[in-house]
Design a protein around this nucleic acid. Structure first.
Lengths: 201, 201, 201, 201
DNA sequence: GATGAATGAGCGTTCATTCAT
DNA sequence: GATGAATGAACGCTCATTCAT
């Protein structure tokens, strides 16, 4: 029975080890500086093993992206102030994103690369239709904000761009060493974004 | 007559043909989907010919970037309302950028890829110190805005992020077909960006 | 039975096949007439396979050289008349070298090319300090000859040149068809070399 | 008339400038490290110009070799002690060769490379039949030495190898910095070579 | 005659993917 | 299931040679 339990628990989930190695190496070395062989080596598995878990390189790259996206979604949802104001929800999201990507440089850099590669466009197209948890959140925020006349009238994607583009760029500047985002700056940014979308009083 | 002859015979500058081919292929196929041989073929020159004009691939990629940057800088400066308000200057810049990149999809896509590649970081670092015409403009805007108490207190890079990140993301959405940026939407975006940086009345 | 199986299955060591192909093609076509692709083809492996065994072209070229050098060293040492006179030792070495390179034209031609290439100088410099088995032999011969007043007073490299240069040149002439080195001529050469280094009676 | 003279004298002989540039660059950078374009640049002529004077790269390489060979031949003949003993003639040749190649490192290095390249074999074969001035000298020395019973009985090429191989190797060691050939060492070498070929007293 | 821009075959090397063990 | 040796197409780049001017 112990043995059974051991067997059941033993795998340190090879798939996950590969995913983590891919995250690190692709983020650090760039999408075109991390060969499959190196990812395998870092994960301490055979090269061929990767192909048991991921059909090919593209699938692996997509999988890492999904891992990050799902993790962030979970964080956003964890303490989501569903019952509070649109503004409160927006600030929650803004600060969560900043904190998450400041604390996870690799994941940020990965995403940055991902969104500027052939992979992302298809993804993005899908996400606008087949909503994930994250998209659900954003769309709901947008709809509620519009319905309550709290945000300006504008297409949803524009709302999205105004709300989050500066946050992402600022985090990039932080990781590049151009600025240090502390709590104060973080507030400045999220507040300013809010100013850009909120309807005039 | 000599001048006529010169004008008549002026070669369709091979360097420029290569630059245009590189722009198109690198933008369309991605930085890693456009081999030198294909760029040469598209430019209707021999592979080796590229290397007469550009020391290597990296130099070519940088040269295309500079071409775009310089072109945009020229447009920004052409009718720059130097004597007018910070707000007027900001709106000028914002609209110029949107118009330019809406009208030049390839150049936009090229820049997008460029800024997420190893090339850009060095460039960016340089540009923050050794200012180009464009940077001059932005920095002056920031300084004047701060000095006149027109914009909120914040580091320059954050100012830059708030001001331009949504514009860039919106143009991307336009080219991806997620939204059509017409004059009205363009105004919405630039105004919203202005709201995010301007000091409260 | 296990041993039998092992022996039976032992693979025809791919590294060695590559080494032999490199030896043949580099010797026959010249260092600059034998592309990696042709070496691979001759070895009946994929081009990339070479790079599993040899980091790059230079390493392969050095490896072939080492193979030859080590083989010759082994032959020299096999029946080395350690206890006999300096003269006996010298004749042993001289005849071994002639015999070895007469019987192994490819290895001779390879070495000839090797020693006139950028590779060799570094090697040679190293070998003069960090002695290999072969160098050990030569140096010992020189020291003993000097100590016993059997050879003329001269720097070691000059001793080396007098002793072996004619041998190498003669073998080259043999392979070029300018002379046939039989036992008698072989003796003539080694004796003459001995005359050039031995102290007058 | 002055003009005529000027015209007649004016060309700094482009062919010769090319030859000198080829000598220097091929010797210094190696036969495979000196492209035609670089040779042309060094000679301050257009790339294509080389092809007016030399049909192709191989012809240029052969021409440089011939230049060196003819120069050395002239030196050997200049003060050749035709009327004196075989030994005197041999010493003359030996010392001339050493001096010439010690004083002309580029020419020595060029020759070294030349003799270990596909070019040389054909040359050598020709030279053994169609005698140049140099070969004439050597052959005469050999024949006279044999006829007068001054040198040992051996084929001519072996005679040649014994007589000159150590000299060439020693000069190489000199240029590589392994030994400094001064007058004393020079004598040691030539004397030793003489010992190797001279008949026992 | 002299030029040097243009060419493109050819090189060394990499790496996603397969498959025998 | 796991492995990693093997593959070969593809890449960036070089350079001997040509030829329009």
């Amino acid at each position: 029975m112990f043995i059974l339990k051991k067997d059941f628990m033993k795998k340190p989930d090879k798939r996950d080890v590969i995913l983590q190695s891919a995250l690190r190496l692709l983020a650090e070395q760039g999408f075109h500086g991390a060969p499959m062989a190196r990812i395998a080596e870092h994960a301490e598995v055979g090269t061929g093993t990767i192909y048991r878990y991921f059909e090919n390189r593209d699938v692996l790259i997509l999988a890492v992206h999904r891992m990050i996206r799902d993790e962030l979604t979970a964080i956003l949802l964890a303490h989501y102030p569903k019952e509070q104001s649109v503004k409160a929800c927006f600030f929650h999201i803004g600060h969560c994103i900043i904190d998450y990507f400041i604390q996870n440089p690799l994941k940020f850099q990965y995403n940055e690369q991902f969104f500027n590669s052939p992979y992302s466009n298809e993804i993005r197209r899908n996400e606008l239709t087949k909503a994930t948890g994250q998209q659900d959140l954003f769309q709901e925020l947008y709809r509620k904000g519009l319905a309550d006349h709290i945000i300006k009238t504008m297409p949803m994607v524009i709302f999205f761009d105004l709300a989050f583009a500066p946050i992402v760029w600022a985090v990039r500047d932080h990781h590049l060493g151009f600025v240090v985002i502390d709590k104060a700056i973080s507030n400045t940014i999220v507040s300013a974004c809010w100013d850009s979308i909120k309807r005039y009083p």
